[in-house]
Design a protein around this nucleic acid. Structure first.
Lengths: 203, 203, 203, 203
DNA sequence: GATGAATGAGCTTTCATTCAT
DNA sequence: GATGAATGAAAGCTCATTCAT
């Protein structure tokens, strides 16, 4: 990149990663060219293949980063006795925080995975289902403890919960909006949760 | 009458349309080949170009059908004195009914337009924004008449509403679920609306 | 064409012919589409194939008309005792008169045959060579009777003669100029001939 | 040094250039396939696109080489006090020398540009007109200094001059003739000029 | 005769991937 | 590690030609 301080191996891989994020966000996976990514990363395109097997695996690496963070989030949630409200709040926070840090990562997840049947491999779908069902287990717990109404299937409430969350993010993605600071992030999280909890609360 | 009841002109165009719906749903717009579509429609691929200028305009025709129905739905809603609940219900119904009739159409809208920045042309984005803002006007009306809480921006509530709706559909799309009959459709519509209205109700 | 007076067979063939002239002139043989020609002729494109075997033979028909006129011109020249100046003048006149009547015909001959190796079939080349050699025989006759200098090969003088003639026409073709009336045609013919005869005259 | 002396970058581009010259000469621009050119150049056809944007620009590169040489020739002519005969001789020489070196280049210019309205873009036509008018300025100078007769428009004499020149070359092109050595080239140049100067001389 | 829907070979162009240097 | 020249499969699109009506 710069003449004076050449990137270390790990930095270069990261540079490619970031470049891919940006390009895939802008053009979509199919229209993103390896040469675009290389140019964005400031390297020759042949070099990408030293760090990533091919375009697909570069894509997988991106998706993996999303899932790793998310599943780690669930590790801190599942099987604990923290209140259901807090668990849901943590799920919301993971989405919003990641969006704050790397809107592109969330965008790619939203556009290329969570909505696209086209890019779905077996692996990707499995992880997606796992995510849904882990969320559903939190919702179900909420029904068991009497926080959420039990007259709807947990899957329905899960859909509504994740849908509202996803919609916020998608709208911001489409509009190119950034979350400005932690305060705005909190407002969004709170209104999201409150409407959901209120709407779905047991009575 | 005829030996094997050949398709009329309009039917042939419709056959291509349906084939495109199916193929694009399965493979996504970019991986969908014109030759796939032709094969699915049972015609030679050169013929597609008699009915549609190119791949893009075939795609546009698909999207147009979605928007036409939706905007017609809004024509019946906006500027009338029907209750806000009914208006929201009609929006939900349009989505679910269309999904019932043609899951592929809804799928394509969901995956290729409402979530994808890559396929967004100016025209497509404009229609999308129009849709959001018409929905928002219904939500805002709900706030004015005291049905919905006014301490959130109408745009927030709109996101939550559309997000929940969209999520239901996306989940069904991903899982390949069909809506089985009008009864199930009603159940979904009602639970969706009730949770939203309850969660967002003024107090 | 018109509802009231449908074209006779011969007229329709002529209409196609004229349309082909115009389209090929404008776009060149390769870019001229049969559908362009049909549209120009006011008929459906399938009908062209009732009158002409295929695109190539339509092209041949055009070229044939040129050659027929030209060879008829030579029939009136060769083997007669008319002065060489008159003979040359007749060759010039054929070119200019045809250009006056149908600039497109001359244009096609000039651009697609007399200059293009690409469109040269054996047949076409043979007729072209025949044309050159008949002209050369007139030039040679001029040398024998002492009108033209004999220290150059007849082929050289032929080239100069035909080149000057061709150049006039090509320039007019490129510039889209028409010959305005017989008077201008005469002026051109005379200056052409005078310069040539004077330059090539025996001394 | 190297195992089999691979072509340098510049050589490879030149190889494609030469291959294109040959193929376009044989088949014409429209029938010349990129794959033909690649095969002729001994490379894969994808590689052509590393060196030339597309077929059109490969064509333009060919034409550009012709014009560059020609306009350079005029640079050495215009605005100098060299005799008009010498100037005309230099124009003739450029054509004949180029033909000697690269008959294909001259052929393509002659067949695809100077005679074809089909391949004429605005740019190409402009350069062509520039060429005509620079020649005309030399002719006009000849009229002013009393070398050439002034009772004809300079444009007429220009047509005759360029026509004779062009015709020689076209005839050789069509017949596949080569200019054998400088001596033959001189003979052609001299006879061409003498006939023209003599025919057009002032008296 | 007349139409234009239907066919499919054939072309240009793109771009992921490889590999010699 | 780094480069970018080289490859060639793959896809969109065109259009001459056929043929059922």
């Amino acid at each position: 990149m710069s003449k004076k301080s050449p990137l270390l191996k790990i930095d270069k891989e990261e540079a490619i990663f970031e470049a891919a994020l940006k390009i895939i966000t802008n053009k979509g996976f199919h229209k993103a060219r390896m040469s675009d990514i290389a140019k964005q990363a400031g390297i020759s395109y042949g070099l990408i293949y030293h760090y990533f097997k091919n375009k697909e695996s570069l894509f997988d690496a991106i998706i993996a980063r999303w899932w790793e963070g998310l599943f780690q989030c669930f590790d801190e949630i599942l099987g604990t006795d923290m209140p259901v409200e807090t668990k849901l709040r943590k799920i919301v926070d993971y989405h919003l925080c990641t969006y704050q840090d790397s809107p592109e990562l969330v965008n790619i997840f939203t556009t290329e995975i969570s909505r696209s049947t086209a890019n779905l491999t077996k692996d990707r779908l499995d992880r997606f289902k796992k995510f849904i069902s882990m969320t559903e287990s939190v919702i179900a717990e909420g029904q068991q403890v009497g926080l959420l109404r039990s007259d709807y299937k947990p899957r329905y409430l899960t859909n509504i919960f994740l849908g509202a969350l996803d919609s916020f993010i998608s709208t911001m993605v489409l509009a190119g909006q950034k979350i400005k600071g932690d305060k705005q992030r909190n407002t969004i999280a709170e209104s999201l949760l409150e409407v959901f909890l209120n709407g779905a609360k047991s009575r």
